[in-house]
Design a protein around this nucleic acid. Structure first.
Length: 421
RNA sequence: GGAGAGGUGCCAGAGUGGUCGAAUGGGACGGUCUCGAAAACCGUUAUAUGGGCAACUGUACCGAGGGUUCGAAUCCCUCCCUCUCCGCCA
């Protein structure tokens, strides 16, 4: 959620940036400012009446204490009159505040200056490529390799739950465990504090990180208890600090968590969903940072480098994209996507997305810090995947296939317990 | 799941209708003292929002939401959460 202060300070600048994000109804900005004007006026009026009522009530108390009942009764009448005026104003105030809020949460975050113009994925900017694409004698796609080595049983997963719920088995299961542990170690070595959060969150949490109200349909909803299955660890982990004011000495807050992630991905179909390319439940290790606004872009670069190191060590061909304004998520000010090349499918697969949200999430969740001067300020929040597992597994299998088996990168040997599948 | 108790400021904890943004203690911060420190003493120490250049000042806020009342931390209702005991259980 953008801050009202920003909208008021530079409405035209805000509109310009929204244009870049292809957010059409920019008139809404003027409308919102108008609502805010009304809100202020109403609050003044309401506060005035309340002040009068409070003063009168105090007098009534004093009159009663002195035994001047009749004077007290007269005052009560006067207060009743004030309350009649108050009621409609308060109703309007609540309604205006509600509407203001409802409109404000529909406005996406503004793209940072670095964000390239563009509408869709094709306009994203490749800022770096690394690793080398393997030359394969045989290009068996991962879904066939999975069968061949008996790593994942999709059919039984579908029997247990539904399609898109993989049943990992044997070495397939162990590979998940190895990757998760490797990723977490990499993160905790870099100073991230490890958490195991709940895998379901309440409405307030889903709202605070921006999944609600706009992405309601993409989450699994436990209606009996009104909980949502988390689509990413970002939700519970960032919410740890919802509604808190941190001291400068506590910054930066660096957190990491492994969780399964649940996504309904309603409406997706076609070739993209084969094998591990897109599933309803998958494993992911996430990193989250809460930082001083002055440092957030430097931190973003650090996080990008941190994730990149994983891909280098996994010996996968990768590229880093700076997302264009039109392809960025609702919440983000600047996002880098990581893709690995899956050599049999001959496709780039997204395995991580690292973003700076600036104050957008912090404003929603009232996440602040107190400056030395005593002033409270919104923090910047950042997060990234380090990493999402399924597509990493797809690329590892496809890129490292040999007639003798799947050769695992060195970094995994210790975690997996052997060098080959 | 059943029974009981309770949710108050950074923490502990008082407050059961007005004089309560809230006693008291602790912590933190600033000051006095000191070569320095400790102790002692003095002071400061929520948040949101309106008005104001500011000093300052209005309003809201004692788990959340409603209600009663001229007036609610305090009374009533609903919900959420915590603790204790019982039941069940990995």
């Amino acid at each position: 959620m953008l801050t009202m202060a920003l909208l008021r300070q530079d409405p035209e600048g805000v509109k310009k940036k929204l244009h870049r994000k292809h957010f059409a109804p920019v008139e809404i900005i003027d409308y919102i400012i108008g609502l805010d004007d009304r809100r202020k006026k109403l609050q003044s009026d309401v506060d005035n009446l309340l002040a009068q009522i409070n003063a009168a009530s105090k007098e009534i108390g004093q009159l009663m204490a002195k035994g001047q009942r009749e004077d007290a009764e007269a005052k009560k009448q006067a207060v009743a009159g004030l309350k009649d005026q108050l009621q409609p104003l308060q109703n309007e105030q609540t309604q205006v505040e509600q509407e203001l809020h409802d409109e404000l949460v529909k406005v996406p975050n503004l793209p940072a200056d670095l964000v390239p113009d563009g509408k869709a994925a094709a306009d994203n900017l490749v800022v770096k490529e690394g690793g080398t694409k393997p030359v394969l004698a045989q290009k068996t796609p991962h879904w066939d390799l999975i069968k061949q080595y008996d790593l994942i049983d999709f059919e039984t997963g579908a029997k247990l739950t539904g399609s898109g719920f993989p049943l990992y088995k044997g070495k397939g299961a162990k590979l998940q465990r190895a990757l998760i542990q490797y990723f977490l170690d990499h993160n905790t070595d870099a100073g991230y504090l490890e958490y195991i959060p709940p895998y379901m969150v309440n409405q307030a949490s889903a709202y605070a990180t921006g999944q609600l109200p706009d992405k309601e349909g993409q989450m699994y909803h436990i209606t009996a208890d009104n909980f949502y299955l988390i689509p990413t660890a970002e939700v519970p982990v960032t919410n740890i600090y919802r509604d808190t004011i941190l001291k400068p000495a506590e910054l930066p807050v660096k957190m990491t968590a492994y969780t399964p992630c649940f996504r309904r991905e309603a409406g997706s179909f076609g070739a993209d969903v084969r094998g591990l390319n897109r599933v309803h439940q998958f494993d992911k290790v996430e990193i989250v940072q809460l930082v001083d606004p002055a440092t957030s872009y430097q931190v973003l670069d650090e996080m990008v480098a941190h994730v990149e190191k994983l891909l280098v060590d996994l010996e996968l061909p990768y590229r880093i994209l700076r997302l264009c304004a039109g392809d960025m998520s609702f919440n983000s000010a600047l996002t880098y996507d990581f893709e690995v090349f899956s050599a049999a499918q001959e496709k780039w697969l997204e395995v991580s997305s690292v973003s700076n949200f600036e104050t957008f999430q912090a404003n929603r969740m009232k996440l602040r810090y107190k400056e030395e001067s005593g002033k409270t300020q919104l923090l910047h929040t950042l997060n990234g995947s380090s990493l999402a597992l399924p597509r990493i597994v797809a690329a590892l299998l496809e890129n490292n296939q040999t007639p003798e088996g799947i050769k695992l990168p060195k970094v995994l040997h210790r975690y997996f317990g052997s060098e080959m599948i």
